[in-house]
Design a protein around this nucleic acid. Structure first.
Lengths: 136, 136
DNA sequence: TTCGTTGCAAACATTTTGCAGTTTC
DNA sequence: GAAACTGCAAAATGTTTGCAACGAA
């Protein structure tokens, strides 16, 4: 572990990519996005920095979706929707995210809850239409 | 894909293992559990059957936790708690699991929601005590 | 000069898959 | 006998890590 943090242009760029999109990217996506501008960027560096950001609480994580961890520019808890058709992960704001329930559960079962994750899976409007067409 | 399903002793045993525990096992755990009784059991067979069970809706999945998919004997939606101390995954019954919220969100955003997953992460009572001791 | 950061490639862990032999029906 | 099922081992996938070179303070 690093005791003192030093500046790094690539680290800054990685953070900017995460914070500049709401698609909840994977490490690979961040890497592909930066590769043109930083031809000598390494995938390992992306992983190392994303993991550090997550541990420091600078970015969030939606969890593993289709085998890849998906990161989140938003740290504040909110609900997510994953479309199994197009693979999109959307934020669902103005929707309860289980925080209150967590509070209750913590008291009821004597748990110390640090994080709550509410995720819906299904089909977005577009993919639902496509699916209907295929079946008819 | 198999068009007609045939009987298999090992498949039956794999299902029994899942249905006989509430620890939400990984494929590896099921494999280790059955290996003594079925020395020629293959990990591939465990994966193949668990995946099929999940797709058929015979068993559930809690998602990927610490790099491994954890399966669930219960198909009906319910809330889970993952303790990052001991790795345990517990069912939290009698706790709202976001179904009602999913209904609302589906209407509001025009989504077709097939599955909702509410998971809390933190420390169970035991691990909280241990952590406190370590820090003092 | 120190030590944090990176590229690279190898290592790792989990899961999937191709194929030949076995089992069910 | 046809087709599903399995063991085995190799492959595929996503992620981590060791190390020497590089770069910031």
């Amino acid at each position: 572990m690093a005791l003192v943090k030093r500046y790094s242009k690539k680290r800054e760029a990685i953070l900017e990519v995460i914070q500049g999109t709401d698609i909840h990217p994977s490490a690979e996506w961040v890497y592909q996005r930066l590769k043109p501008e930083y031809p000598d960027l390494s995938l390992g560096t992306v992983y190392r920095n994303l993991t550090a950001f997550r541990q420091e609480g600078i970015i969030g994580s939606v969890g593993v979706i289709c085998g890849q961890e998906r990161f989140d520019r938003m740290v504040a808890p909110h609900t997510h929707f994953f479309c199994r058709g197009c693979g999109r992960v959307e934020d669902l704001f103005e929707v309860d995210n289980g925080e209150a329930v967590a509070q209750q559960a913590a008291e009821k079962f004597g748990l110390y809850i640090e994080q709550t994750r509410l995720t819906f899976e299904g089909l977005c409007e577009d993919c639902l239409q496509s699916e209907k067409k295929k079946l008819s």
